[in-house]
C-alpha cells in the first residue's frame, strides 16, 4: 500500500482549474505579425536571435485568427484605425492588446489631423510599453507584465464552473 501512496504523492499535483488554465494561457502568448511603423522594427529585433522572444512562448503568427495578443506597434492613423479594430475583432477570445510605443499609447509627438490620439480610444489596451521606440527589453518586460496579469485573472468567471465554486 505504501508504494502506491508514494507513487500518487510523486506524480499527482493538486491545483485549481483557474491557475492551470491561466498558466497554460500565459505560457503561449502568440502575437500577430503586425507592424505599423518604427516600433515594428524593434518588435522584429525582439523576435530575432539576440533577444529571442520565443523563449517566453511568444511566437509570431501571421493571421489574427491564430493569435492571442495584438501588439499595436506604431502610429495608428485615422485611416488605419478601422483596420486595427477589424483585426482585433477577428481574434478569438481570450485576447489581449499591448500598445507598444508612445504613438500607440497617446499619439505621441503626432498630435495632428491624421493620427488617433491613443489606441485606447478604440480597442481595450492591457499593457502599455512606453518608449519611442521601446527597446526590445521593454517589450519583453511588457510581455512579462501581461503574463502576470493573466495569471491573476479569473479565467472561469461567468462559466458554470464558477457558480459551482462559489456555492
Amino acid at each position: 500500500m505504501g508504494g502506491v501512496n508514494n507513487a500518487i504523492r510523486d506524480s499527482v499535483l493538486f491545483t485549481t482549474a483557474e491557475s492551470l488554465i491561466n498558466w497554460s494561457r500565459s505560457s503561449a502568448l502568440w502575437p500577430e505579425t503586425f507592424g505599423i511603423a518604427c516600433c515594428a522594427i524593434e518588435m522584429i529585433s525582439a523576435g530575432c536571435a539576440r533577444y529571442d522572444l520565443d523563449r517566453f512562448g511568444v511566437v509570431f503568427r501571421p493571421s489574427p485568427r491564430q493569435s492571442d495578443v495584438m501588439i499595436i506597434a506604431g502610429t495608428v492613423t485615422r485611416k488605419f484605425a478601422p483596420v486595427v479594430r477589424r483585426l482585433y475583432d477577428q481574434m478569438p477570445e481570450p485576447r489581449w492588446v499591448i500598445a507598444m510605443g508612445t504613438c500607440a499609447i497617446s499619439g505621441g509627438v503626432y498630435n495632428t489631423y491624421a493620427v488617433v490620439q491613443g489606441a485606447e480610444t478604440f480597442v481595450p489596451v492591457d499593457v502599455h510599453v512606453p518608449g519611442c521606440p521601446p527597446r526590445p527589453e521593454a517589450l519583453m518586460h511588457g510581455f512579462l507584465l501581461l503574463q502576470e496579469k493573466i495569471k491573476r485573472s479569473r479565467a472561469l468567471a461567468g462559466t458554470p464552473l464558477d457558480r459551482v465554486a462559489a456555492s
Binding site: R78, N111, T112, Y113, A114, V115, V116, Q117, T121, F122
Partner: peptide, 15 residues
Amino acid sequence: DFPLRGYKDKLNPFG
C-alpha cells in the same frame, strides 16, 4: 486655414 490638430471627435479629443 485647416487646423493642425484637425477637428474634434472621439478619436482625437484635442482637435
